[in-house]
Amino acid sequence: MTPVRHWTESETSPPKADAPRSANVYTPPLDIHETPEGLVLEADLPGVPPDQLEVRVEQNVLTIYGKVDWSHLPTEARLIYEEVLPGDYYRSFILGDEVDTERISADFNNGVLRLILPKAAKARPRKIEIRTSTSSPTG
């Protein structure tokens, strides 16, 4: 099994969101559903500006890292009630052989990341033609 490499261990292409990380790192909840063409993954990453989101595929390991920025809050605002602690999002998992990692596409709207993971050609259902010999089997 391929070990999941952490961001900081990657030297070839450092992630864009490389600023000092906050203390809280959350695992974003996600849905995965299947379509005839492949898998669709949707993950909640509220508060992550598009330029602070990094989706990476290395070998067969898909990694999502998003840095939260509550930019609209005035700096002088004083906290009086708290349910949400600011934090970043990190999730990494291994893709099965069925996914064509070259053709993964992503969009990111309203804090929801949507990844299209197309099935590799070999994993796509293929209809096998069954031919019947019209002529009677003769030896």
Binding site: P46, L73, N110, V112
Partner: peptide, 17 residues
Amino acid sequence: NLYETPNEFWLLAPMPG
């Protein structure tokens, strides 16, 4: 979360999607 400045309250609520 709820925040306060001298003249305002601010509510911040993550609601993806």
